[in-house]
Design a protein around this nucleic acid. Structure first.
Lengths: 238, 238
DNA sequence: AATTTTGAATGGTTTAACCATTGACATCAT
DNA sequence: ATGATGTCAATGGTTAAACCATTCAAAATT
């Protein structure tokens, strides 16, 4: 008959009020909240409780706290960082294996490439070619560090080409979380880099003739090959 | 010459230590942390600071805090809840539209179905048929609530059939976040339910003859049709 | 034996200091 | 004048010591 009188922890109420203000656009990114000692009075709470609320908002990625004069809590643009972090926790806790991730990556990068290729503008292709030529130059100079960085940029740019933020952040999450394994188990060498370059060249060619299916197939095979190699390595030295 | 003396906030250090203990399995799910007043001494900090750390760990989904005697901070099994919540925030803040989500869902459920169908055992198919028959019964009795629940179960079971937790939780995140839109804009009726049933019947048939591609195509079309309908609705009453 | 009371354990909240970092402004030597 | 240096105020970070509220179990009472 009656609803349970909800036990609201005070800091939760503060979190909700500030969060709602941010989501509803009453507080825009960059806006500065009043100092703790003023907020505490506005919410009629203690400084300790208010600080717990600020900690939660900070953890959610909604605000950023700066020290010193003219410091304080500043509203952030909501981004994918908290999602990536939560996913990393889940992976690190052992709920997800490298095989699981690789399998997912093959499928998602396939879908992603298909979308990207089907939406590629001439400008996009030009941008990819610029990146490709940079990567090629680094390859020829045996500059693996910059080669890898450029390779990463190409993957990211293909994500952007989908024009869909969900694909963008899923790819970023996967890459962020898989990256340290690659670095540890699969150092770059001339042969592997050349494979990379060849694959990307084929992808760009497929995009030029609007062949999304082929582009997708190439990236899936590309990811599959690398995942297989990495899993060989991890199995040999657990 | 010297490294910048890193400014570590005390509560962050506490968070990291406890988080590492949980990830490394030194603290298993269900384990109870000492009471605040003891923890505060162990970390040589104040209660306020310690509580800020507990708030962060709570927000990350790593612990749960219970009141009363024999209460305290209890280690939780890491789950997908924080990811779902972060994604919900991103969506609500307008960073992700319904179209973006739908597009992603079409692709992911396509891949997911292909995997599930290719790994379907006879037992899996039997389980799906059982669920299908339940749904059919609810349909014939105009019991929409249970129909929807069973429909959801079928989707979930197909996720399980992939044997890959990444697909499982991505699907869960998407469904959780899209669900309230469906409930609001697309109430079930006899015609739509029948469409649902027909699609599932076709999917099971395709699985029986090991035709993963067809099963995938059906679910993609299925999702696409529903997304289109929902987007018509949301456009007509914004 | 059933019920009520009490008490201990634990998290929740408040208050009042003090510390540390930062940036602006005043001061001083050149 | 100008640049280095010192001072100060604003702000978050931390600590400490209370007291409140909830919960459960054990003791006391009927």
């Amino acid at each position: 008959m009656f609803k349970k009188a909800k036990q609201n922890r005070v800091f939760q109420d503060v979190v909700e009020q500030i969060q709602d203000a941010i989501i509803n656009g009453k507080l825009e990114p960059g806006a500065k909240l009043p100092p703790e000692r003023e907020l505490k009075d506005m919410f009629n709470t203690s400084r300790g409780t208010l600080r717990e609320a600020l900690r939660v908002l900070e953890q959610k990625g909604l605000i950023e706290i700066k020290l010193g004069v003219s410091g304080g809590a500043i509203v952030k643009l909501i981004d994918t960082e908290p999602i990536i972090e939560s996913l990393a926790l889940l992976i690190r806790s052992g709920g997800v294996s490298l095989e699981h991730l690789a399998e997912f990556r093959i499928k998602i990068e396939g879908s992603l490439m298909e979308l990207a290729a089907s939406r590629a503008t001439k400008k996009d292709i030009k941008e990819l070619e610029t990146l490709f030529n940079q990567a090629k130059a680094y390859y020829e100079n045996n500059d693996w560090e910059n080669f890898l960085k450029t390779d990463e940029k190409m993957h990211t740019y293909i994500g952007i080409m989908t024009r869909n933020p969900v694909f963008q952040f899923v790819q970023k999450s996967i890459h962020d979380n898989i990256h340290r394994y690659y670095a540890e188990y699969l150092p770059m060498n001339k042969k592997r880099s050349l494979e990379n370059l060849t694959d990307f060249e084929k992808i760009i060619d497929a995009m030029k003739i609007n062949d999304a299916k082929t582009a997708s197939a190439i990236i899936m095979d590309h990811v599959k090959r690398f995942s297989d190699k990495m899993q060989e390595k991890t199995r040999s030295k657990p």
